[in-house]
Nucleic acid binder design. Structure first.
Lengths: 132, 132
DNA sequence: CGACTATATCGACAGTTGTCAATATATGGG
DNA sequence: CCCATATATTGACAACTGTCGATATAGTCG
């Protein structure tokens, strides 16, 4: 029987995150243990759901993907409106949601706002889903 | 610097899934490659977002967690209403969404409907989030 | 300064979502 | 066959969400 085996190694910063990471955005710490081991608490579920909602949108998935796959792993708003085919305010709105969720970080240089993927953010989201 | 290393081995059925798995629910195949490697297509993003939306809810996260951590990895609706503190129709509604997303499977025995976690479903959701 | 550009915020509006009460649909037992 | 119980469906409603056009803010370059 054909199988594809995916091996993932995730390193999550445990305590002292370094300066670069702190500057880059909110530290991505997993909200909770694996869902399937012990039952998640109501408040942890609330927190985790909020983060999941941030990426659970087709446009935001594409934005994250485009940013991550960009030259230098960063992109400005002007680079993003055309690929997703939405207005500039709408793209800014989505980027704000992603930034507030700690998935993207924003750094302004001149007139431009550059967004980049917070290292480890996606892995922190994935962590509670995988059964150890 | 303290670090926790998470090693995940995910086996996704590639072609001929066995009978038990087929009966248990929709086969959980990852929708797409890692987000950060190549940019996800619009339609793949649509599909992946639909699945993410299914778990991106505090109640549904708890339902999945309770079911997975239950005796025999299954639970009926009557076991679930009290823990989440919602009405029976509302719980049934959430369970339907999770089932249609291929995360839970439903098997009716007598008057009771037993829900269980589809093996590999959560890992399939996590897969595109982890950077290879 | 003043025009130009990039981005963010605001207000509005349609569409979706989570919830419940009421009701419908099984299923098993006397 | 009818009742009791477990679950699903329906309809309604408030709350949230994604989108846009208009406008505000802020930085750049003459």
């Amino acid at each position: 029987m054909g199988r594809v085996v995916i091996v993932t190694i995730i390193e999550l910063p445990l305590v002292s995150r370094d300066a670069a990471e702190a500057a880059a955005g909110v530290a991505p710490a997993a909200c909770c243990g694996p869902l399937t081991r012990e039952t998640i608490t109501a408040s942890d579920a609330e927190v985790f759901a909020r983060t999941l909602k941030a990426i659970a949108d087709p446009v935001r998935l594409r934005l994250v993907s485009i940013v991550a796959a960009s030259e230098g792993q960063e992109a400005c708003v002007c680079d993003l409106t055309e690929p997703v085919g939405l207005s500039q305010p709408t793209v800014s709105h989505h980027l704000k949601i992603l930034t507030e969720a700690g998935i993207l970080s924003r750094s302004k240089r001149g007139t431009w706002a550059y967004y980049r993927l917070v290292p480890g953010a996606l892995e922190a989201i994935a962590a509670p889903l995988v059964s150890v």
